[in-house]
Design a protein around this nucleic acid. Structure first.
Length: 270
DNA sequence: CCCTGAACCTGACCGC
DNA sequence: TGCGGTCAGGTTCAGG
């Protein structure tokens, strides 16, 4: 489900309900996620949640004695459960606060994660090698061009590599490359600095716009406050293979690139 | 170091 | 109605 806008929408949706509250209990009904949910995660019980932060698509639940690192994977979601709402089959983890507020994690495919660290979470092996946040000034055309030097990999795969830049998943990679007029299969090392400039602007714009609108809705995405996102209606290419390019009317091409659906306009993107 | 493909898992959908 | 194949928003990992 989630790309960066969905994760950020989730963070904003849940934080007001749980920050500052004391965790009464963490209920793990299904510990078999991407990695096993560690027993040490119960160290958060009895502690006050200090903040909910985001790094890439990871959410960090900060406590004085450690941090829960979560990831929503492909199909995960976090929501505030209603009082006495019984967990459904795929509701794998609850974080129950002492006032009865319940943060509920649902993840049918179980590609997500709930981990615990007592060290600086940004130094955790999963986070320490991540690329810059796309919506900060650290994400520039110069940076991308430098990282792309000599690389033959398709620019779309390059853009989706979280070690290059975090938060650009399949939907927004397709969208940003269209906006920048770059063919998704072009070798990353053969994209000019001027075009990386356009790409950086496109990534920032598409992500910011999507966050503004509450995240893309594909199937059933809902933010932490239960409101669906509305970005889906404005997608330029994703999910539109065979339909006319909104710019030039050419039928959009759809191919598979690195096992991912890739949609582009063969006229507008070169 | 770079690149590719497989793997993790369930559910929805489509054609027969 | 059932079955098999394909696809889905992510990321790590093994192997060449």
């Amino acid at each position: 489900m989630p790309e960066l806008p969905e994760v950020e929408t989730t963070r904003r949706g849940i934080a007001p309900h749980i920050v500052g509250k004391r965790v009464k209990r963490i209920e793990v009904r299904q510990p078999s996620l991407r990695w096993p949910v560690p027993e040490e995660i119960h160290a958060a019980e009895g502690r006050k949640l200090q903040a909910v932060e985001r790094r890439g698509k990871y959410l960090l639940l900060r406590f004085a004695n450690g941090t829960i690192i979560t990831h929503l994977g492909m199909s995960g979601s976090l929501r505030i459960a209603l009082q006495d709402e019984p967990p459904l089959f795929h509701d794998h983890v609850d974080l129950l606060c002492s006032d009865g507020t319940r943060l509920r994690y649902c993840d049918p495919r179980r590609f997500g994660a709930w981990l615990w660290t007592e060290d600086d979470p940004l130094q955790h092996p999963l986070l320490v090698e991540l690329g810059p946040e796309p919506l900060t000034d650290a994400f520039t055309a110069d940076y991308l061009a430098q990282r792309a030097t000599g690389r033959k990999t398709a620019v779309k795969a390059f853009l989706m590599d979280s070690h290059i830049v975090v938060g650009v998943g399949n939907i927004y990679a397709n969208e940003a490359l269209f906006m920048a007029g770059i063919h998704p299969k072009r070798a990353a090392g053969k994209v000019s600095l001027a075009r990386y400039e356009k790409l950086v602007q496109a990534v920032k714009q598409v992500l910011a716009d999507s966050i503004e609108m509450g995240g893309t809705t594909l199937r059933d995405f809902v933010g932490g406050d239960g409101k669906p996102g509305y970005f889906q209606q404005t997608l330029r290419v994703y999910g539109r293979g065979g339909q006319p390019c909104r710019r030039c009317k050419t039928a959009l091409s759809e191919i598979r690139l690195g096992q991912r659906a890739t949609v582009f306009c063969k006229t507008c993107q070169t």
